[in-house]
């Protein structure tokens, strides 16, 4: 088995007649955090959706842990170990914080029925507001909840779409610490779409830059600065 947890092989995707992703070849090494960067509209969110199965791949195939998951439905991919924190967070507005976290347990393979304690250790605020409805939370609280819900399913791959968007700095720091923890302590593989490049470079080991629905550049965040890469891919 290769060292890649996820690999995309010539994947195209889109909406109706318009194609967004063009023959994307892409791999995520196990246990590493990868930042997916690029301007608005280049297909970053579509790529995450296609990995999660929210959009069908029109061509190519997707391998997860050596298994072809191209034809699996979204919930089957979740149960295989992929979780997503989508843009706009999508917490269930009329479920309480606790219920939102419980909903995330549906993806677990070990059948555990209780919310893992480490989620409340990473985000102590969630324990304080556990009986409040998701729709009534602030943006930062919702983001913590969305990440907590994804972690509740015990994923091996965590997809995050703009986790810092519209979030106040102290919560961004908390999110960064939490993601660092799950990567280093739990060995989770992370793919994060991020416009805030400083955050992306602090968190990620690798970067992939997209342009016009293709991956145009990949590399190591330690050997290239964010500014240099941003300049090269016109962000």
């Amino acid at each position: 088995m290769s060292g890649d947890l996820l690999s995309l092989d010539g994947v195209s995707s889109g909406y109706g007649q318009s194609r967004i992703l063009w023959d994307v070849d892409f791999a995520l090494p196990r246990g590493k955090a990868t930042a997916l960067i690029g301007r608005n509209g280049v297909g970053k969110t579509t790529l995450l959706s296609t990995i999660m199965g929210l959009r069908p791949a029109l061509t190519g195939r997707i391998l997860f842990d050596g298994k072809d998951i191209t034809r699996l439905s979204t919930h089957q991919r979740a149960r295989a170990g992929i979780a997503i924190v989508p843009q706009g967070r999508h917490v269930f507005p009329f479920l309480t914080v606790e219920e939102n976290l419980l909903s995330g347990l549906a993806a677990r393979r070990d059948g555990k029925k209780a919310i893992p304690d480490f989620i409340f250790d990473l985000f102590p605020k969630l324990a304080q507001i556990r009986h409040r409805k998701g729709g009534l939370l602030s943006g930062g609280e919702q983001q913590q909840l969305a990440i907590g819900r994804a972690l509740a399913g015990d994923p091996r791959l965590l997809l995050l779409d703009e986790p810092t968007e519209g979030i106040q700095p102290n919560v961004v720091a908390q999110i960064e610490a939490a993601l660092r923890h799950v990567r280093t302590e739990m060995g989770m593989t992370i793919l994060v779409v991020e416009q805030y490049l400083d955050f992306a470079w602090r968190l990620a080991d690798l970067y992939s830059a997209m342009q016009g629905g293709r991956i145009v550049r990949q590399g190591d965040t330690s050997s290239e600065t964010a500014d240099a890469v941003a300049h090269l891919v016109h962000i």
């Binding site: 999660m52 929210l54 979204t74 919930h75 979740a78 989508p86 269930f92 009329f94 909903s103 677990r108």
Partner: peptide, 15 residues
């Protein structure tokens, strides 16, 4: 209730 409130997200949580 989760499906009712957000079908896409419900499936992404494994429901």
């Amino acid at each position: 209730r989760a499906v009712n409130q957000d079908r896409m997200m419900a499936s992404a949580t494994g429901i």
